[in-house]
């Protein structure tokens, strides 16, 4: 039988450090889109708590436990990151393995927020976007999921088919930010 080897979406492109900011790709992890069926929201939240010890996130929120994260991912959906989804969720939600569908990168460093602010129309200030918050918005011209992991650390999830574009747009902004702070 042929042995298939998982290839990370940004292989050969990352990590990159420019100025104070590093863009890197975390190890590939299971990514599962979970969308509650109509009227099953409460039952799903309960099943999620039992199976993964994770709180179902409100719009713009995330929850985490035991190395897994549940990231609000748009209207009536969340992305389970880091663990394979329990089959116990299937009775209450549409559950789709999308591990191969997304490119997940981490932008971190002193000027990381300023780099992102060049690419997204989001309000990046602490009071609007605290640690643990998440948003669906644009990164340059592309739809993406943006989550604040720490004070200077952001997870960005974009379409895998556009991984090189995502890296290109982010590194361009990193370059212009670094050029500016050297003056």
């Amino acid at each position: 039988m042929i042995e298939l080897v998982a290839k990370p979406p940004c292989e050969g492109l990352l990590p990159v450090t420019i100025g104070t900011v590093t863009l890197s790709e975390p190890d590939m992890a299971p990514l599962t889109l979970i969308a509650p069926m109509k009227g099953k929201e409460v039952a799903l939240a309960k099943a999620m708590q039992t199976a993964h010890k994770l709180e179902w996130p409100e719009a713009g929120a995330t929850s985490g436990a035991n190395g897994a994260a549940l990231v609000w991912f748009g209207r009536a959906q969340a992305l389970l990151v880091g663990v394979a989804a329990s089959t116990k969720l299937n009775a209450h939600a549409a559950v789709a393995d999308q591990s191969d569908a997304w490119a997940r990168v981490v932008l971190e460093g002193e000027d990381a927020r300023e780099v992102l602010a060049r690419l997204t129309p989001l309000d990046m200030r602490d009071r609007a976007f605290p640690v643990g918050a998440t948003a669906r918005s644009e990164v340059f011209h592309m739809q993406a999921s943006i989550t604040r992991m720490g004070a200077d650390s952001w997870q960005i999830i974009g379409f895998r088919s556009m991984a090189a574009t995502l890296v290109h747009d982010l590194t361009r902004a990193m370059e212009s930010m670094a050029a500016r702070s050297q003056r």
Partner: peptide, 10 residues
């Protein structure tokens, strides 16, 4: 109603 105030380009 879900995302809050956003730019019209979205």
């Amino acid at each position: 109603p879900l995302c809050g105030e956003r730019d019209s380009r979205e």
